[in-house]
């Protein structure tokens, strides 16, 4: 039964080219997002998660070539002119970045930067926009919002800055929020607060969210569904709880079993040996093949397509391992 999707990504690929060097950062991504749904995009550094997010917003640099299609409610975004595309940013979809310290302009106050988004999309006069900005800061639980609005970024703590960024992103009531590792640069204690905040805001505003992270443990709290990314392509997809409880793809399985918090069967297994493949040299077969313990000859020659596993899950694995793994839970 077709769900009216907010965002539909079809066969999205991103290639960076400069001179003789060419790197395929993202390869053939497919997924759909329903309104109000939270999707977690999980993977280690360098796997292309951020590039995907930037591709959705249309913020990739000139030397990036994007193929494939991105649909926003049936409207194809890549076919739009730059100005039309710009209208979607901030208003329909907004992004929160990883480094709060450098994502805020040091020469403008927090309030000014939130108000800027408001004035841009809602065309309110300065005073009103500032008042709205303060209200937003209160909504993201910045204490002393009125005073903090007149503070400069270097006077605020990391957690505070991230809240300011969040406020700026929410300023125009976007339908989709892209959160790129929003807590990675923060203290552990603050991380939980921000995550709670994100969760609340998402539900309260009925916002769709793509939550990018490398830490699996953060996923269940926020996400309805999750997508696992490895070396530029999606390797597993499905409802978050189910995937974590019984990961199907060998990579996902490795992620779960080596995670100190998720793995409850005694000592976490040792880290997976090896590294993700060099992005400038992508091979024909499955990118995970060199590190996979279930690897078979066919894995080296064919790029694995998504294999449906039932219950809205699929895994990009050619072996029959994935299917059998579905039933073997690792997390109760």
């Amino acid at each position: 039964m077709p769900v009216s999707s907010l965002l539909a990504v079809e066969d999205l690929s991103v290639r960076f080219t400069a001179g003789a060097v060419s790197i395929e950062a993202v390869r053939s991504i497919n997924f759909r997002l329903a309104p109000g749904e939270c999707l977690a995009l999980v993977g280690e550094s360098g796997c292309g998660k951020s590039v995907t997010a930037l591709a959705l917003l249309g913020l990739l640099p000139d030397y990036a070539t994007i193929t494939g299609k991105v649909f926003w409610r049936e409207r194809e975004l890549n076919a739009l002119s730059p100005d039309e595309r710009r209208a979607y940013r901030g208003r329909r979809m907004a992004m929160v970045f990883q480094e709060p310290a450098s994502s805020l302009n040091p020469v403008y106050t927090a309030g000014e930067q939130v108000a800027e988004a408001i004035r841009l999309h809602r065309r309110l006069p300065r005073r009103e926009a500032m008042a709205q900005a303060i209200a937003l800061l209160e909504e993201v639980r910045v204490p002393d919002a009125a005073q903090k609005a007149h503070s400069y970024p270097h006077q605020l703590s990391g957690g505070m800055r991230q809240r300011v960024l969040l406020a700026a992103a929410l300023a125009c009531e976007p339908e989709l929020l892209l959160a790129d590792e929003p807590t990675t640069a923060l203290d552990v204690t603050v991380q939980k607060q921000i995550l709670d905040l994100l969760s609340q805001l998402q539900r309260k505003r009925r916002m769709a969210m793509i939550f990018i992270t490398h830490d699996l443990a953060l996923v269940p709290q926020l996400a309805d569904r999750m997508a696992v990314m490895y070396a530029g392509s999606l390797v597993e997809f499905g409802p978050a709880a189910a995937v974590i409880a019984a990961p199907a793809h060998p990579y996902t399985r490795a992620l779960v079993t080596t995670h100190p918090e998720l793995w409850v069967g005694g000592e976490p297994l040792p880290e997976l040996p090896g590294l993700p493949p060099d992005p400038s040299q992508r091979s024909e077969g499955c990118p995970f093949a060199p590190r996979c313990q279930h690897v078979q000859p066919v894995c080296q020659t064919r790029f694995p397509p998504p294999v449906p596993l039932g219950e809205g899950r699929w895994a990009a694995c050619l072996t029959s391992v994935a299917g059998s793994l579905v039933r073997r839970r690792v997390v109760p």
Binding site: A18, S45, G46, K49, D180
Partner: peptide, 9 residues
């Protein structure tokens, strides 16, 4: 040129 592509994750 190798330095060019410093995209995050």
């Amino acid at each position: 040129h190798a330095r060019v592509f410093t995209t995050r994750s």
